[in-house]
């Protein structure tokens, strides 16, 4: 068995495009669930909003407006990105206004429902590509700025990326670095303290004269914007978007990553993502190799795909039961976690 191949595959996935997408979405979830205690089970909706706004602007709107703005297609991405963030903000308001005054599980059900509504509705809207989604040179404006030399593959030690992937990966990690810094700055501030207070007991914070509704809304919006950033990276990196990519399981993957890395830790999502994707891809690759070489006889190659999800499901259960603060957890804090 060639473990080396599995290892490099795993490594390049753990810091690659997929990891960046999940990390951004999970960082948003960390703000909402980790710090403010908001049960957002529909983070995927925010991701989808990012991907679809960009996809629609670049592929549908830009060609339509070239008649009165000839260079629309050269700049469209840079207009579409703030627009996507604006739509994300509106979605947060739409979700938050009815539910943030209600019990926590209402938000859970409404957010997961919204994710599904979005997916089902988009499927039947032809301008958004219907079931097929949108594909094309969605990231063209972004790749036009690619400073890497025009070669097929870029080698970085153990891992190799294509020229466009490396550009996405580098920008992705810079953005992540900045957003981690932002999270850190926000969460050590009195604002972050009041969010953590709301997570522990909203009534107590109300009694201390804080407008908790406003702060929960701010947390929902901020976390949603992070999710939308994930969606923007997704569509730029893959240059396509399909409705069925945005299933509820995406959000549950993010929860697994968050709990694996440490809830309410600035670096929790980062550590969680790297470990999660490394282990996932490594196991999968090893299994594929083992099945192909006949080492494992009872599985067919096609049965390996679902194993990824089974592993995530089992991991989520076990983590939640045994170590809710897995890696960055604080011993003292863990001892208190009687919730």
């Amino acid at each position: 068995m060639d473990l080396g191949f599995a290892l490099t595959q795993a490594l390049s996935q753990a810091i690659g495009v997929t990891a960046i997408i999940y990390l951004l979405a999970t960082m948003g979830l960390n703000i909402q669930f980790g710090y403010a205690g908001l049960l957002n089970f529909g983070q995927v909706a925010f991701v989808a909003v990012g991907s679809y706004t960009i996809g629609a602007c670049v592929m549908t709107v830009a060609p339509a407006i070239t008649s009165w703005w000839p260079s629309a297609e050269s700049y469209i991405l840079w207009i579409a990105i703030p627009l996507a963030l604006l739509v994300s903000l509106l979605l947060s308001l739409l979700l938050g206004i009815p539910t943030l005054r209600l019990r926590a599980d209402y938000l859970a059900i409404v957010t997961i429902a919204t994710g599904e509504i979005f997916r089902l509705v988009v499927k039947s809207i032809e301008p958004l590509g219907g079931v097929q989604g949108i594909s094309g040179k969605i990231g063209a404006n972004f790749y036009a700025l690619n400073p890497f030399p025009d070669v097929d593959r870029v080698e970085l030690g153990l891992v190799t990326y294509t020229r466009s992937d490396i550009w996405v990966v580098v920008v992705g990690w810079i953005v992540i670095g900045l957003l981690l810094l932002l999270t850190w700055a926000l969460m050590r501030s009195p604002w972050g303290r009041s969010l953590r207070g709301i997570r522990e007991d909203e009534d107590a914070v109300l009694a201390l004269g804080k407008n908790t509704y406003l702060r929960k809304m701010q947390a929902l919006i901020l976390g949603g914007l992070f999710g939308t950033m994930a969606g923007i990276f997704w569509v730029v990196a893959k240059q396509s978007v399909q409705p069925d990519s945005f299933v509820p399981d995406f959000t549950f993957f993010c929860y697994t990553i968050l709990i694996l890395g440490g809830v309410a830790r600035v670096l929790g999502p980062l550590i969680g993502t790297i470990i999660f994707w490394f282990l996932l891809v490594f196991t999968e690759q090893t299994l594929i190799t083992a099945v192909e070489s006949g080492t494992i006889g009872f599985l067919e190659l096609t049965q390996v795909g679902p194993i990824r999800f089974i592993l995530v499901g089992v991991a989520l259960m076990l983590l939640m039961i045994f170590r809710p603060q897995w890696i960055l957890g604080d011993r003292k804090e863990l001892a208190l976690d009687a919730r």
Binding site: R193, R196, G197, D201, D203, L208, K210, D337
Partner: peptide
């Protein structure tokens, strides 16, 4: 309603308006 996973000092500081 003490805020369990905040320190005692943070509980206090949260009170300031």
């Amino acid at each position: 309603k003490s805020l369990s996973r905040l320190t005692v000092l943070d509980n206090m500081r949260l009170g300031a308006t």
